[in-house]
Simulated scan of single mutants.
Amino acid sequence: MVEIRQSSIATFLDNVDTREFNIYQRERVVIPTPEEDNEHIEIKGRHGSLTKKNGFKDIELPIDFYFYEKASFKVTFRHAKVKFFNAKTLMLNDDDSVFYKIKSVVIDNALNDVLEVGEFTVNFRLDPFQYELSDSAKTITAQRTLSNPGYESEPIITAHVAGTGKIYINNVPITIQNINGTIIIDSELMNAYGNNNGIITNLNNHMIGDFPVFKHGSNVIYFDGAISKLEVNPRWRWV
């Protein structure tokens, strides 16, 4: 039977502590480092192999939970499963400056020898990156340098435009043409669009250039033409 003890560690699903619905994290977990997905290609006449980097693989994170209350575990477990399967983000309170994006969830069979006691394991499949919780949009009206402390990030940039202009990130231009209002450039989704009170408009044909990435270290941003300002969420992230 599960050993009951007061838990000071906690899991947050979409910023909600699982203890709020009487589910407790059993013990502290070790976060795995994502594995690089690399190809090593041997070429005759070449010294060594040619390495092709395809990014990082997802990480698998099992977390053990238990329940001990003056109620039926099966009822609580039934309601808890809805929250686990619907969750989009995961945060641990012993590392609460970052969160993880949940890809999928597998819940093992629960042990329930006593009506009010139960335990089970949730296996999370997570995006490989840890995302900064403190990230917020930065308004840019003149040349500015943003310092990326972590791994390269895929920002979301909202440009305020009255015609045509260019955004420069580390001197690499992105042309925005024939926009009267705002255009959102989302490097993670690789999509340029407008959002008018929740109505999304595809604006990819109004953007010329590659979706920007902020490298580790200093990133210089400026703009010209009919662009008046940028709102930049850098989405700092770690591996």
Rank of each mutant, 00 (worst) to 15 (best):
R28M: 09
F67L: 15
V16M: 13
L115V: 14
R19L: 01
F124V: 07
P32R: 08
T141W: 12
Y66H: 09
G163K: 12
K166D: 07
G118P: 02
A142P: 09
M1T: 13
L61M: 09
M207E: 05
L61E: 04
N86Q: 15
K103F: 00
Y168N: 05
V16D: 11
N15K: 11
E27N: 15
I176L: 10
R144W: 11
D96Y: 08
I9H: 02
D94K: 10
P173K: 09
N197R: 02
S49C: 07
F211E: 04
D95S: 09
Y168C: 04
V122W: 06
N22C: 06
K53E: 10
G217E: 10
N148K: 07
Y193E: 01
K83T: 00
E35G: 02
N180E: 05
V114M: 05
Y168F: 15
D14E: 11
E152N: 13
M190D: 01
R78G: 10
I200R: 08
I43F: 03
G181C: 06
F211L: 09
Q177A: 08
V220K: 14
G217W: 04
D210S: 14
A80G: 06
G150L: 11
F73L: 03
I221C: 07
N86W: 00
I183C: 01
M1Y: 08
R144E: 06
N205R: 13
R125V: 06
A87C: 03
F67E: 10
L230I: 07
I107G: 05
V232W: 06
L90A: 14
D95L: 04
I23A: 02
G194D: 08
E152Y: 10
D96N: 13
F99R: 03
M91I: 02
V172Q: 15
A71Q: 06
K138M: 11
E152S: 10
G165V: 06
V232T: 08
S187I: 05
